[in-house]
């Protein structure tokens, strides 16, 4: 009895899934790889060369990073549009988390569009790969640095709180107690990712 109006159900489920896999996993990998900057420019640049030299790199990027992020981001914008935040009237904790999830989603998506253009697309156009020096140079601009900090904080919050949503959407966190415990755990994921991401950024400063 499945009909075409069940598409939105599958799109929403796909939206929830892509947020954690591959996007969430990629974010953790991305922070980790960038942490190689702590060993200095040569080590970092050699890691960039390693990733650029992977077989099928464009295919991996397009299928596992670009398409999932574009889908998650654009469908997310539609989800934001279908909601009507009401924290002024109902200032409950979860309601604030609901609103923050939407705000951080928009901020993170805008940042990612800029970030992918500046560090990848422009490189593809000019043939000049991203390097420790080029990142360091662009971060000299305080506006770009602030945008990076905001982007990292937003993406980290969005992932942690999104994981809590994921646990509910997939029927894993059901009871009140388990939801409370898992929401604390997801809060720790958010905080941990924020520290992880900002630390990676600090090695370029």
């Amino acid at each position: 009895m499945a009909t075409q109006n069940m598409y939105s159900f599958f799109l929403r489920r796909l939206h929830s899934l892509t947020g954690v896999l591959p996007i969430g996993a990629f974010l953790a990998e991305h922070f980790f790889t960038n942490s190689f900057a702590m060993f200095g420019p040569e080590v970092y640049n050699s890691k960039v060369e390693f990733f650029m030299g992977l077989p099928y790199i464009i295919l991996i990027e397009v299928c596992l990073i670009w398409i999932p992020i574009l889908f998650h981001g654009l469908y997310g914008m539609y989800i934001v549009f279908t909601g009507q935040a009401n924290v002024t009237r109902y200032g409950f904790f979860r309601n604030w988390m609901y609103l923050l999830q939407r705000i951080t989603g928009i901020v993170a998506f805008c940042f990612i569009v800029y970030h992918v253009y500046a560090t990848r697309i422009s490189g593809l156009l000019t043939g000049q790969h991203v390097s420790f020096e080029s990142v360091q140079q662009s971060l000299q601009n305080p506006l770009i640095l602030v945008f990076y900090v905001l982007g990292i904080l937003s993406a980290s919050y969005h992932l942690g709180n999104g994981m809590f949503g994921f646990l509910i959407t997939w029927g894993i966190a059901i009871g009140e107690k388990s939801q409370r415990a898992l929401s604390i755990l997801c809060g720790c994921v958010s905080a941990g990712m924020m520290v992880f991401g900002l630390a990676a950024l600090s090695y370029f400063a």
Partner: peptide, 11 residues
């Protein structure tokens, strides 16, 4: 699937 998990309902 359109539930946004704001959880105001239960409150």
């Amino acid at each position: 699937a359109e539930c946004g998990n704001a959880q105001n309902c239960v409150r």
